[in-house]
Design a protein around this nucleic acid. Structure first.
Lengths: 236, 236
DNA sequence: TCAAAAGTGTTCCGAATACACCCATGA
DNA sequence: TCATGGGTGTATTCGGAACACTTTTGA
């Protein structure tokens, strides 16, 4: 017996699940991994902190929708964004059937903080520590947990960690970023050897000017840095 | 400025993308990796071979929708199924905006072949070799490619390969399955050592009765076999 | 007794790990 | 001159890869 799709039947209007995107936006600040949450201005869960998200327009792709939400909340564009998973439990939203495509994004804190403060002086968007996050509505806790798991996984197997730092950074900063996200200390010499062996960052030739101690070399990541290091995991 | 989601505005009817699931169903047969395709009975791409798929009902979860399509096409239930990716380019379907959540499934060929022949004697569903597949409509080629990539990845890093075999199997059959999917020969002794070290299969105590040569021990996979071997990849 | 497939250990090599001291700068 | 963080090499261990012969059965 042919089914709906095969017969060309298309369910219309209210017989379709609605479709949203939610974005888990990570940044590093103050030696801590932060996630960006927004305050819900309306029911359900009015005034709860929740993941930024919204309905997908028929005129935009999923990636565009995620990038739009990211830009609306942070003002930044062209940061690392990756589809996470699509959540579609029938009761995940009390209003109606809503399926959400979750994305996660990595942004350099410095490029976002000011814009949030300026664009949202009402405090409707805020960074929260992952270790001290508020109760989240819907299935957002599950989404955040999954995003964190994926971030750690990506960090171990790929070069994606650079995306949390400014354009130029020192190896110590990079190591610190990895340590914060993975929540474990790393050996300095081994870290440097592996990161440099991966060949995805290059010296700028500059050194840090300020700060105590010996000035550090500055590095930047190449254009191919978004590409994954499929061949071997960076940190086992 | 608050956006749609935040103000509680819900787009209705035709302003929502439609939502489908598509399932890439893999099986092994005749020393080859096969994918199940169905013949489209209606426009667009009438009579083309395409991935089994259909609209998500508002009363079923995404997993349920995928399982339903799988059961409709193969008659089997409770096989390994995993969400692959969600494809949402705006022009991926010429009719209208349709977002599809792709799944991939691994089925033991023996448990499906008869059911297809009986349930679909019109030949509207068929196994195709991945090396000799017909041109597919929509973005289905991309979906199949991605599913194959993910299957290979999963096979290297997890124990999921058992799902392509019948309940009881020999180590040689298992190795053959891995070799077919990965498309490369594997060392017998290393394969056995690693598979057994993973601890996810156990001897049944039985041996094969028929066939040439020395009878082989039969193995089955434990209840936890669906769980991933996160700790270490099986085959580098 | 032969063909055909099952079963079994060891060596080698490369990568990951653990580990401690000197260097450059500003206060 | 000292406090602070930057920068460097080696020995050991462990896991992956390569590799060939014996065993069991049916014909």
């Amino acid at each position: 017996m042919p089914n709906d799709h095969e017969t060309g039947f298309i369910p219309s209007g209210e017989n379709r699940p609605a479709l949203t995107v939610d974005v888990v936006i990570f940044a590093l600040y103050n030696n801590d991994l932060k996630v960006l949450l927004v305050k819900r201005p309306s029911a359900p869960f009015k005034d709860s902190w929740a993941l930024p998200g919204g309905f997908v327009k028929t005129s935009e792709s999923l990636e565009d929708a995620a990038a739009r939400k990211l830009a609306e909340e942070t003002g930044v564009t062209a940061v690392y964004t990756e589809q996470l998973y699509t959540f579609g439990a029938i009761d995940r939203d009390p209003r109606m059937r809503i399926v959400t495509v979750a994305y996660f994004a990595l942004v350099p804190y410095e490029s976002v903080a000011v814009q949030i403060t300026h664009a949202k002086p009402d405090g409707s968007a805020r960074w929260f520590s992952l270790k001290d996050r508020p109760d989240l509505p819907f299935d957002h806790p599950k989404i955040v947990d999954y995003a964190l798991q994926r971030l750690r996984y990506k960090l171990e197997y790929t070069s994606v960690g650079f995306q949390l730092l400014p354009d130029e950074f020192t190896l110590s900063q990079l190591q610190k970023a990895y340590e914060i996200v993975l929540d474990e200390p790393l050996d300095k010499r081994n870290f440097r050897r592996k990161i440099l062996a991966a060949g995805v960052i290059e010296e700028t030739g500059e050194k840090t000017k300020e700060g105590e101690g010996r000035p550090a070399r500055l590095y930047k990541y190449g254009d191919d840095s978004v590409a994954e290091i499929k061949s071997r995991r960076l940190f086992p």
